[in-house]
Write a protein that binds this DNA or RNA. Structure first.
Length: 473
RNA sequence: CGGGGAUUGGCGCAAUUGGCUAGCGUGCAUGGUUUGGGACCAUGAGGUUGCAGGUUCGAAUCCUGUAUCCCCGACCA
């Protein structure tokens, strides 16, 4: 094997990750502490996530809008738990136009408060409900320790905010959003995630219930990959937002909010990448096919161009006829960039009207006749997408441990880590102690987790079902 | 924010009791030979050693401050 120009995933996940994100030109460190520059190749991933989700969001009747970046400090303070939860990580503007502001402005960490203030203005009766809006925007959370894509001071996301007349409608929306996230991870990113409800300690500041999708990373830590919050009537009451119902009584709208961020890109990189670099599932890959004519082969260049012309109509295809790099250099470069399929064309292939096709996930090569090319590519793209999802699902299952003793719990957390399925009495004291002793927190009560009598893995009190624990990212 | 490590041509690194013109690999430029898994030869350009002060005849090296990054913790999408 040729010597590597990137760090190895198999040796040090963190170093590999940081090195790869920069070298594959997904993102770079910025002059501003904790902030990153998302480069075109990385931003293309985000755009694909956006267009995938946006279609479903609109189908559900949720409309896109845009609210201000700045939130008056007093707004945030209206919901007590909300402000307490976010206070430590706020960026605050105190000066404007050279003058001290009479009221400080918060750079939004999330937009509940400013959006609901406007919703309040726009609605008078039950007929004005539901309100269903989403915004694609940036938010700022002053994190103390940052990590490209996974945790940066500023990040991009979508935040959906809906308000309904009934709790049932509200619940439907909360579940719909969670399903959308599951679909996005499964179908687009080929990442297997576990959905479920959060414990009280782990829920969103100000929420009634929080639901999340949790994905297991290669180092056995869990990535909270998307959240959907049932806010109940908490915010409406705090904001004194009521409308008149059919009987002329006060109705506090039921609300929900849900978000998925550029953090998902970090998960994508980590889950599928290997020692050779990125591995993108075909559905998300900015470039699905890279065509490499062997440099110096005249006939090959001609064939490669005509092949690319045809394939471009149907796939995200690109030709690399850049001179000055050898074939081997190009192979390594595009492997590092995670392109799902590489088509190699030399004079040898041109003579028999064929191309060599290599799939990135398994690195298997085959020679394919031009006549069969489209059919083969269609099948390979489907296979790669399915294979990557299957691999991650298997990894997650192989690293999910059903545990009944705290000793075993501790042992797993101090060795391989992973998802731990264990009984828990649902007291926050026990949860805090488990975290203190093992670093693991509850990730969620998985959807479809069946009832089962047992005793809390920590305190021995009765429990009705197993929760999912892991160290969080 | 606490503990540890780092910052030297674009990138990766070397250079101590403080001492000669700060080296090497890679990349870059030019010419030639090459091109099917990160090519080779020759020539050449590229540095006020993160930044700001200080000590000294003399600082990449010692001191103070500061910025940024990485790792481990607490906080978090």
């Amino acid at each position: 094997m040729a010597k590597k120009f990137i760090k190895l995933k198999s040796e040090d996940l963190s170093e590999w990750y940081n090195d790869l994100v920069v070298k594959a030109e997904l993102a770079d460190y910025s002059p501003v502490k904790g902030c990153m520059v998302i480069r075109p190749y990385g931003y293309a991933i985000w755009e694909r996530i956006q267009s995938f989700m946006d279609k479903f969001i609109k189908e559900k009747g949720v409309q896109n809008a845009y609210f201000p970046l700045f939130i008056p400090e007093s707004f945030l303070k209206k919901e007590k738990e909300h402000v307490a939860g976010f206070a430590p990580e706020l960026a605050v503007v105190t000066m404007g136009g050279g003058q001290e502001l009479t009221e400080k402005l918060i750079v939004r960490p999330t937009s509940e408060t400013i959006m609901y203030e406007m919703y309040k203005k726009w609605t008078q009766s039950w007929r004005d409900l539901p309100v269903k809006m989403n915004q694609w925007c940036n938010v700022v959370r002053w994190e103390q320790r940052t990590y490209l894509f996974l945790r940066t001071t500023e990040f991009l996301w979508q935040e959906g905010h809906c308000a309904h007349a009934t709790a049932a409608e509200n619940q439907d929306m909360v579940q719909w959003a969670l399903d959308l996230y599951k679909k996005t991870y499964t179908d687009l990113l080929a990442i297997y995630g576990v959905t479920g409800v959060k414990s009280d300690a782990e829920k969103f500041a100000g929420a009634g219930k929080t639901y999340s999708i949790e994905a297991l990373m290669p180092n056995g830590k869990a990535l909270q990959a998307g959240t959907s919050h049932d806010l109940g009537q908490n915010f409406a009451k705090s904001f004194d937002w009521s409308v008149q119902d059919q009987n002329g009584d006060k109705l506090y709208p039921y609300q929900n909010s849900w978000g998925l961020s550029t953090r998902s890109i970090g998960g994508l990189i980590m889950v599928h990448g290997d020692d050779n670099g990125l591995v993108f599932p075909p559905q998300i890959a900015p470039i699905q096919l890279i065509i490499v004519p062997i440099p110096g082969h005249e006939k090959a260049v001609k064939l490669a161009n005509s092949v690319n012309k045809n394939l471009k109509l149907k796939y995200r295809s690109q030709i690399d006829d850049f001179e000055g790099e050898t074939a081997g250099f190009k192979f390594n470069k595009w492997e590092m960039k995670g392109v799902p399929l590489r088509l190699e064309i030399g004079d040898k292939e041109a003579d028999i009207n064929s191309v060599v096709v290599l799939r990135r996930d398994t690195l298997e090569k085959q020679t394919v006749k031009i006549a069969d090319l489209e059919k083969t590519i269609d099948q390979l793209l489907i296979d790669i997408q399915a294979n990557l999802l299957q691999k991650h699902k298997k990894f997650t299952q192989d690293n999910t441990f059903s545990v009944d003793s705290f000793d075993e719990f501790k042992k797993i957390m101090s060795t391989t880590r992973g998802f731990i399925s264990a009984h828990w009495c649902e007291s926050s004291e026990c949860e805090a102690k488990i975290k203190e002793e093992t670093k693991a927190t509850t990730r969620c009560l998985p959807d479809g987790q069946k009832d089962e009598k047992g005793v809390c893995v920590h305190c021995g009190k009765p429990s009705n079902h197993r929760w999912l624990f892991a160290q969080s990212y």
